[in-house]
Design a binder for these strands. Structure first.
Length: 422
RNA sequence: GGAGAGGUGGCCGAGUGGUUGAAGGCGCUCCCCUGCUAAGGGAGUAUGGGCAGAAACCCAUCGAGGGUUCGAAUCCCUCCCUCUCCGCCA
């Protein structure tokens, strides 16, 4: 959520800034709501004050043993008027709050203009794309029967996967490898978290209220959702907390499954492991001091890149343009791995700084020093990395003519072999 | 799933209808005292909002939401959560 004060001060400037991401702010509605809110709040608080004062008089009079009837009569229909006005006030306040919850974060000044991923800006390219003296296959062909979509369709439907044997093991080893690096070398603390979360949690990180249709809903006594990313439970570790400045930065890493409806992507990426309803991810989250978040974004991105480099996977880093930026992000750097089977780069990690946008929704604060007022922390996250896509990148980049796959050195100790045969 | 007990500030904890945003303690901040250490004395110390900030003033908040009342931390209802015992279970 954006700062309501900043909003009040200069809504036009906010509208202008949001244009970069292609968001048209409804200023007329905003002004109507804000004006109504202001008037109602003043009126309601005046009436409440009046009621409080009179009630106190009654209390004092009663204690003295005086007749309180005239005083009670004096209060008259104050309660009724107050009920009516405060009802209206709360309706407007809620409407305004809901309006603000649907507004995306402001793009950082360094975010390039643009409408779609076509206009993302390439930051750097790493590694040599493999050259094959045969026609490279895609991961579905390479994995053969180890990737059993016939089974996953029977079990669940389209956009799920069943991995078998060595392929399933490689999947597990990738998770282990990534966790090991981030914990031992990058200073992250590992978390095990719930995969089913409540509405408040989903609202704090920005998935709700706007993107409810993209989420898997779990029916029950209270509304719950399957997490679309570990960012959701991890960032909510600090929801409603007042941290001590000395606790920052907090670095968490967690491996979780991620569940996505992919509702708007019918017919897109239907082959293989690229876009599925359930996939695994090792996620990095940082909670930082507001002054430290941009530096932290660089560090976090580098932590994710380290995994790609250790796995000898050619990749590039791109800055997302305004139009491609996610709802809650102020700036995002995507890491895209080269996929020979598709002859293109595909996203394996998305590293974002949300500045205080999520923190404000989550009421995640810290105290700069023992006597100071609280301030919102900054939150960041990035995949380190998406497991399924990394897995297929390894298959496709390291395939050999005979259909075997040579493992990157970093994985050999985990797998116990150097070459996989499917 | 059954029975019971609870949810109050950073923490512990008092408070069953009236100047209670909340006693007391711990912790923390500042000051004083003390030749180190230990200890002592004083003052301060919730969050958000009205309102960019400061002061003053005002409003809201005692798990959440409703209700009763002139007035609710306190009474009533619904929900959520925690703990104890029993049952069940990996």
């Amino acid at each position: 959520m954006l700062d309501p004060r900043r909003f009040r001060q200069d809504p036009e400037a906010i509208a202008e800034a949001l244009k970069l991401r292609g968001f048209e702010l409804d200023l007329a509605t905003y002004h109507d709501l804000e004006d109504a809110r202001h008037k109602l709040q003043t009126d309601v608080e005046t009436l409440q004050h009046e009621r409080n004062v009179k009630s106190k008089h009654i209390g004092v009079a009663k204690q003295r043993g005086e007749d309180i009837e005239p005083l009670v009569a004096e209060v008259g229909d104050l309660g009724a008027r107050l009920d009516e006005l405060s009802g209206e006030f709360h309706r407007v306040q809620e409407e305004l709050h809901d309006f603000l919850l649907h507004i995306p974060n402001l793009p950082d000044a360094s975010v390039p203009p643009g409408e779609s991923e076509e206009e993302n800006e390439e930051l750097r390219v790493w590694g040599d794309r493999p050259v094959f003296d045969f026609e490279p296959r895609d991961h579905v062909e390479i994995a053969g029967t180890s990737l059993d979509f016939e089974a996953s369709v029977r079990i669940s439907g389209s956009r799920f996967s069943v991995l078998k044997g060595e392929l399933a093991k490689l999947h597990r080893c990738l998770i282990q490898f990534m966790l090991d690096v981030h914990i031992a070398e990058h200073g992250y603390e590992e978390l095990y978290v719930p995969f089913i979360v409540n509405r408040e949690t989903m609202t704090a990180t920005g998935q709700l209220p706007k993107f409810e249709d993209d989420m898997f809903f779990v029916r029950g006594e209270i509304d719950r959702f399957l997490i679309p990313t570990a960012e959701v439970p991890i960032t909510n570790m600090v929801r409603d907390q007042i941290l001590d400045a000395s606790e920052l930065p907090i670095r968490y890493v967690s491996h979780t499954p991620c569940f996505r409806r992919e509702s708007g992507s019918h017919g897109k990426d239907t082959r293989g492991l690229i876009r599925v309803h359930q996939f695994e991810k090792v996620e990095l989250v940082q909670i930082t001091h507001p002054d430290a978040s941009w530096e932290a974004l660089e560090a976090l991105t580098n932590h994710a890149e380290t995994i790609l480099r250790r796995l000898d996977l050619p990749y590039r880093a791109v800055v997302l343009c305004g139009g491609d930026l996610g709802f809650a992000a102020a700036k995002t750097i995507d890491l895209e791995v080269w996929l020979p089977g598709f002859n293109r780069y595909r996203e394996v990690s998305s590293c974002s700084n949300f500045v205080d946008f999520q923190a404000r929704r989550a009421q995640a604060r810290f105290r700069p020093n023992p006597t100071a007022r609280t301030e919102f922390v900054h939150t960041l996250n990035g995949s380190g990395l998406a497991i399924g896509r990394t897995l297929l990148a390894i298959l496709e980049n390291n395939q050999q003519e005979d259909g075997t796959v040579r493992l990157p050195e970093a994985l050999v100790p985990y797998m116990g072999v150097e070459v996989l045969r499917f």
